[in-house]
């Protein structure tokens, strides 16, 4: 049996390495930063860790319903924002030297959240 995507990417250590790179990218992107700006940055950072765990195919208790509810209150959230976040995820993985095949798998998982995130 081959190792899971999560293990191949590097498990929790990879999430820890990725979270600050990823969170800084979205905060620096003026087109989406407003969705991530908050006084409680520790909680927001934890949310990003959860998201990365999901995208890395790791163990999580995050259902499609949770994903939907978490994004329901974000006014004006659209296709372009989803694409921007996905782009930052890909760039983060590439920056960490994750091989192209694994990046592709993670991007496919992220893409599968599309309808729940945008409430479609």
């Amino acid at each position: 049996m081959s190792a899971s995507l999560f293990d191949r990417i590097g498990g929790n250590a990879a999430v820890d390495a990725a979270v600050d790179i990823f969170y800084k990218k979205v905060l620096s992107d003026d087109s989406i930063s407003r969705f991530f700006e908050t006084t409680d940055m520790d909680a927001q950072r934890e949310k990003q860790k959860k998201f990365l765990t999901v995208a890395f195919g790791g163990p999580n208790d995050y259902s499609g319903k949770d994903m939907r509810a978490a994004h329901a209150g974000l006014e004006g959230l659209n296709e372009a924002h989803f694409g921007a976040v996905a782009g930052h995820l890909q760039a983060t993985l590439e920056e960490l030297g994750v091989p192209a095949a694994e990046v592709g798998e993670a991007m496919a998982i992220a893409a599968s959240t599309h309808d729940d995130v945008l409430g479609l």
């Binding site: 620096s28 700006e37 006084t39």
Partner: peptide, 10 residues
């Protein structure tokens, strides 16, 4: 405080 916290993190 909110704005500067973000900037300090960045």
């Amino acid at each position: 405080v909110k704005k500067t916290k973000t900037k300090a993190y960045l």
